[in-house]
Design a binder for these strands. Structure first.
Lengths: 303, 303
DNA sequence: TTATTGTGATATCCCTTATGTATCAGTTAG
DNA sequence: CTAACTGATACATAAGGGATATCACAATAA
């Protein structure tokens, strides 16, 4: 059976007359009769009752018609969806981000604006540490990740840099530095530093250590935090002080004070990375959306 | 576009390889490439990304596939429904009946058993008077009717006779005959007779008048009832007595008594009529069901 | 009745087009 | 580099969808 058979069948059913139906579908009557006959053989039932004056649907034909009419609509819909897919307006996008990136207000803003622009794209969000994110991205089980990279971009990935975040010092409320407005980095040289495990995010870890060394001291590593987001909580119970990306100060943790750094300070870079072999239109659109957001953000024109 | 294109497309999508897909659909690889190309042109988007090692669906292809897969299932379903339709297992049946036929217990029993046997047939029930029923049947806007015909069957219709009902006399509770067990018809010769309008059911009307004449009197026509089913109510308010098909005595009307007739009495024939040009399998099945019910009823083997 | 008209079915030829064969161009492995 | 895959291209072939002419049948008109 071919769609042709169904087109002809519907024409005859609607015209109730082979000759007119033939004219309508643009062929002569005899081949139409022949095609209908073929269809009836395929279906296994007579679809029309041939009358001296036209043709009427049998019950089999009625039943067949009512089911078959939707086929063409379905195919049209399939074509439409294919075009949408080609435009990246539908599909799937799996986005990963580190805990520290999540608190950067640009990231949720980007996610929101993408969702508005492509509401038919099925969006999955995953929070993992940087190492896991990079691994998943290489396996193509995630399409795009927000990470905090080191001074040089990760190799073998397509990277789009986002505006850097400042870093802030976190000290317990009762700490001697708590009342300062801003402090230089080397004010921390005798303080035990609460840091996340290097294995979770080596670049940000190294950035902090390197910055300390640049200003002339080797930091004392205190408690190791299992997640970046819980550093403030460890500081609150006076296990040390820490240095975190500024957006983390948005989290309200009682018992800690966030202080800006002056002078040479570590940088919290933020970047979007995608797989270089990923030519998916959805991913491309997402990267484009990120760039558009960077532009509008730098113009203070977001939302 | 033809179904062939979709079959080929699905094969390539599932195999991820033109050569294997070609083998699977039983053609050579070059024509397969050509057909897919035609399909892509028709859809207006590239459906496959041709890789050095096989072919992968593009996003357009993914979207197209997910919509197109149901098409073949739909067509198979259409074929199945066509065969069901051919067997009279689906379709529509419009059944009409007169008010007096509705109270014959055979009629609802037949409807019920047909519904059980052909649950997919869409059954419509209409209650009208005999004249209207006949008219609708001739226009083919009803498929089958239960009527109370005269001594000779209506002409130009396919008629199946059902068992006759006895007729009973209805008198007000306070009537002088109310205490009898059974009465002869001519006991009513001086009583005004409540009858339905002759226009609603001329055959039953004539049958009653004729029976009275056979036993030697011309009945006095009293109140004319707009419907057969309300005759008992008119009798209850002492507008006269009446003669009705026995099944109507099942209706509980306070203030009336139903009495059997002895000797020569009018007959309440019951018949199913269908249109002779109606070769619908559903209608045929319904007639068959009626005959089966008559047989089982005569054996007291119903339900 | 007979003639006419309109219906779908049949017979036959033709030509479009789907398919097959041979081959090419590109990439990946060994 | 060669061998072995991949899909694309060029061209020949033949299957079959379609056109034309005609038939058989029924309803209608004359």
């Amino acid at each position: 059976m071919e769609l042709r058979h169904l087109r002809y069948f519907i024409a005859v059913a609607e015209e109730g007359n082979f000759r007119r139906a033939a004219e309508r579908v643009g062929i002569a009557q005899p081949p139409l009769s022949s095609q209908i006959k073929d269809l009836e053989e395929d279906v296994g039932a007579q679809l029309f009752r041939r009358l001296p004056r036209g043709a009427a649907l049998t019950e089999a034909g009625e039943a067949f018609l009512s089911e078959v009419q939707v086929v063409f609509g379905q195919i049209e819909y399939a074509k439409k969806m294919a075009l949408r897919g080609a435009a990246g307006e539908s599909g799937r996008l799996r986005v990963g981000f580190t805990g520290s990136a999540a608190f950067n207000d640009a990231v949720p803003k980007i996610i929101r604006s993408f969702r508005r622009a492509y509401p038919r794209v099925e969006l999955t969000l995953v929070e993992l540490n940087t190492v896991q994110l990079l691994e998943q991205l290489r396996h193509r089980s995630i399409d795009a990740i927000f990470i905090r990279p080191g001074p040089k971009a990760p190799e073998g990935l397509t990277v789009t840099s986002l505006p850097e975040d400042a870093m802030m010092v976190v000290v317990p409320s009762g700490h001697r530095l708590a009342s300062e407005y801003a402090i230089p980095l080397n004010a921390l040289k005798d303080e035990p530093l609460v840091l996340h495990s290097r294995a979770l995010g080596p670049d940000l870890y190294d950035e902090i250590i390197d910055a300390c060394r640049r200003v002339g001291f080797d930091p004392i590593i205190g408690q190791v935090s299992p997640q970046i987001t819980s550093i403030a909580n460890l500081v609150a119970v006076e296990l040390g002080v820490s240095i975190v990306p500024a957006p983390l100060s948005n989290v309200n943790v009682p018992g800690v004070v966030f202080l800006p750094l002056v002078g040479d300070a570590p940088r919290a870079r933020l970047a979007l990375a995608t797989h270089p072999d990923d030519h998916s239109v959805v991913t491309r659109n997402f990267r484009e959306q990120v760039r558009a957001n960077i532009r509008s953000k730098s113009m203070q024109n977001d939302r």
